[in-house]
Design a protein around this nucleic acid. Structure first.
Length: 713
RNA sequence: GCCCGCGUAGCUCAGGGGACAGAGCAUCCGCCUUCUAAGCGGACGGUCGCAGGUUCGAAUCCUGCCGCGGGUACCA
């Protein structure tokens, strides 16, 4: 907290306490929490008071009621603490520890000499320049894997949280002194890709748009999901309907008579349907029908019944709850738009499996299609990374680790780490670790049909990280829901003998939701990154036009991008990663208050002062008679190096996000209260040096968050 | 069932043993002849989910309970 002086200070306090006859005990040090007061405080006196006054307290409170006794004890202890603090403070002062040492409230406050500490801090910032805050090299190589988008799917704002966290974490670790490798791992194969390509070939071959093909592919994926789940959705709908709508149940008999007249359904199926539609249990199961096709004929009859419930034409019908019926009618209409899917849907799953086989046997035609469409997605991803200013050192692809994954499964089986259970290779982790209670459970590492799982590839890939990239520590930025899975992977790697596995870390984050509903690219309920970013840039541009119309148009565009994207990124970083983030468009795009633009603005203001001032003054400046505004700012600037270390240690970019904001608050406070350019010398020179240091600290902390620091806004 | 996370101002969130619990948004009032007002000052607003415990001291640590979310062998 106070650099090299911290340990020394603690030792001197401890020695002084020993001198005063107190038993040895740990000495705490913290910052004095008052504005304008800069120094270290210790609460040892409070702790010592508890022991020193124990007997006195016991005597004074004997026989008193609990509440009274407590108040009495508190009074005695607080007086005792202040007494010890006062003695200690006097000794420290006499010993020349500092020019000002005071006992306040039982604390001992050791005040820094503003002038000399300010000079030291600002000299350090100036000497280190753009490297201010960089920690000494740790000699450890860390790989941070993040982003991991799936090709053939759209990028939505949920993915942005991952990118923002991973990018910031990488920057923080790098500045803290680690050698960092940023890795991306693209899901370019798997069920989702096969599904998308099946849908593309079956329904959209040759109709791709001239641009934004990646996005279009995402839409195809969403459609494939809807198609493949169509029957399930219909059955689910019927089950909910029959359990909730009594009028509907009572009409079952009439509806099935109508179906019977169509003569398409067998008597057995009619009987089954009648039972399911009228019993209200919601257990209708498609597999129990001889001919699922009859549901297609029943479907319009269901719709007619719901319309009848909403707007009765027959007087004698049972009374329906119109609100419920209307809700179901709306849902029916949604599903009815794709009524023609029902019959062919029966063979789609089969078609998808066949497509999977094409991949497995590397069918040339299929491979060509896969590569072509994959490139569409990759192009789009690269555009997004460029806009975000995110770069990667290593690109991994799921498609490239499948084979290695299979080999690895063989190896794990041979070594007895994995075993075949219930027809597939698994690792019984708890059993292998000899744990009595279930904790890591069982992880399947290959499907029973021999196709690979995510775990298959992940295990193989991680081994590659260790062996080929020689990383000492691997960090995964992934959804918290993978938390158990990640622990399983770490344990398996440990069982496998990888020492590095003990230092691996899962940087989990909670999901991004949309007013309660989870974002899902399967269901297409996401807010696409592209759309949000476009709007963010548009709003930022609007503010620039208003505030700074003189700025050259080319610069306006650049700054709008820096501000808009910055606002989005900051919104992803300024809350704890294990808190659900409800994405609010206006809040995320806000350009005021606690936000990236606020911090960027403080930076731009500092830049403007420096620009107008010309060159920085050379030599030592006089930092005597600093105002509270200046002291508070310097104190915050001085904090950056340790905040970087803490953020790296705790895997918390949030710490930097909060730090940057408080720094900007202090810069603005300084700006409002302290004139620089028209201040008399030597004050002017000293303040210019301070502004320069503040500017560097702001730029550095924004950089750690992956956010640009424009010089003008 | 078991495991993990969350619960702090009207809303969104910081703070995770210490000195009066802090921001932003929202609402209201004030500040641009002075280095960019994307700013600044002020007002309003809190039994820190509940109950015990540990401690000189608990929003913070421990236990139990309540509420919400997530995970729990062939999804990723």
């Amino acid at each position: 907290m106070f650099g090299d002086t911290e340990e020394g200070l603690k030792e001197r306090i401890a020695a002084t306490l020993a001198d005063l006859g107190h038993a040895p005990r740990a000495v705490d040090l913290r910052r004095i929490p008052f504005s304008g007061a800069w120094g270290a405080a210790t609460s040892v006196a409070k702790a010592l008071a508890g022991q020193a006054a124990a007997a006195e307290v016991a005597a004074a409170t004997a026989g008193l009621a609990k509440k009274e006794a407590k108040e009495r004890a508190a009074a005695i202890l607080s007086a005792k603490a202040q007494e010890i603090a006062a003695t200690l403070a006097a000794r420290l002062l006499a010993a020349g520890v500092a020019d000002r040492v005071e006992a306040v409230n039982g604390y001992v406050n050791i005040y820094f000499d503003h002038t000399s500490v300010a000079a030291r801090v600002l000299a350090r910032v100036r000497a280190e320049g753009d490297d201010y805050g960089r920690g000494a090299p740790k000699g450890e190589r860390v790989m941070v894997e993040f982003s991991q988008p799936n090709t053939h799917k759209a990028m939505h704002v949920g993915h942005l949280r991952n990118i923002a966290l991973g990018n910031a974490m990488s920057a923080i670790l790098a500045r803290a002194g680690y050698e960092v490798l940023r890795a991306n791992y693209l899901g370019d194969i798997g069920r989702h890709v096969i599904q998308c390509l099946w849908c593309y070939r079956a329904f959209h071959q040759g109709e791709e748009p001239p641009e934004r093909k990646g996005r279009w592919l995402g839409e195809i994926y969403t459609e494939s999901y809807a198609r493949l789940h169509y029957r399930e959705d219909v059955i689910g709908f019927i089950n909910r309907l029959t359990s909730e709508d009594e009028a509907f149940r009572l009409a079952a008999d009439r509806m099935l008579k109508e179906l019977w007249r169509k003569k398409t359904a067998s008597g057995e199926d009619i009987a089954y349907l009648l039972g399911q539609l009228s019993n209200g249990k919601g257990e209708f199961d498609l597999n129990k029908l001889h001919d699922p096709g009859c549901v297609a004929d029943l479907w319009p009859i269901i719709g007619a019944q719901l319309r009848e419930e909403v707007q009765p034409t027959r007087a004698q019908g049972p009374l329906a709850d119109k609100e419920v019926a209307q809700r179901y009618l709306d849902e029916w209409a949604d599903l009815d738009r794709h009524a023609d899917w029902w019959v062919p849907a029966g063979r789609w799953e089969e078609e998808v499996r066949a497509t999977f086989q094409e991949w497995e046997r590397k069918d040339p035609e299929f491979m060509a299609l896969w590569e072509r469409t994959r490139a569409w997605s990759l192009d789009e991803f690269h555009r997004i990374y460029d806009q975000l200013g995110v770069g990667f050192d290593v690109w991994f692809y799921e498609s490239a680790v499948e084979e290695e994954g299979r080999r690895m499964v063989g190896e794990l089986l041979e070594r007895g780490i994995a075993e075949v259970s219930e027809g597939l290779p698994v690792v019984k982790i708890d059993e292998k670790l000899g744990l009595e209670q279930e904790r890591y459970r069982v992880l399947p590492i290959l499907r029973s049909d021999g196709t690979t799982l995510y775990a298959t590839k992940d295990l193989a890939l991680t081994r590659e990280k260790f062996e080929r990239y020689h990383v000492d520590r691997a960090v995964w930025v992934i959804d918290v829901r993978q938390s158990l899975y990640m622990q399983q992977i770490f344990k398996i790697l440990e069982l496998w003998g990888f020492e590095q596995a003990r230092h691996c870390h899962h940087l989990g984050y909670e999901m991004v939701t949309l007013q309660g509903a989870a974002i899902s690219s399967r269901k297409g309920t996401g807010v696409l990154y592209e759309d949000v970013a476009a709007e963010a840039l548009r709003r930022a541009r609007g503010v620039i036009e208003e505030k700074n119309p003189e700025m050259p148009p080319e610069q306006k565009g650049r700054v709008a991008a820096q501000v808009g994207v910055g606002a989005l990124l900051y919104g992803m970083l300024d809350r704890d990663n294990n808190k659900v983030l409800v994405f609010d468009f206006d809040e995320a795009l806000s350009l005021q208050g606690q936000s990236a633009p606020y911090i960027q603005y403080a930076h731009a203001r500092a830049c403007r002062i420096l620009e107008r001032a010309g060159a920085l003054p050379e030599g030592e400046q006089d930092f005597s008679d600093l105002t509270d505004h200046e002291v508070n700012l310097i104190e915050q600037i001085a904090l950056l190096p340790e905040e970087v270390q803490r953020a790296a240690r705790e895997y918390k970019p949030l710490l930097i996000a909060t730090y940057a904001y408080s720094l900007a608050v202090r810069v603005n406070d300084f700006y409002e209260n302290c004139r620089v350019l028209d201040a008399p010398e030597p004050r002017r020179g000293a303040r210019l040096v301070l502004v320069d240091a503040a500017r560097r600290a702001l730029a550095a902390s924004l950089g750690l968050l992956g956010i640009a620091a424009p010089e003008a806004m």
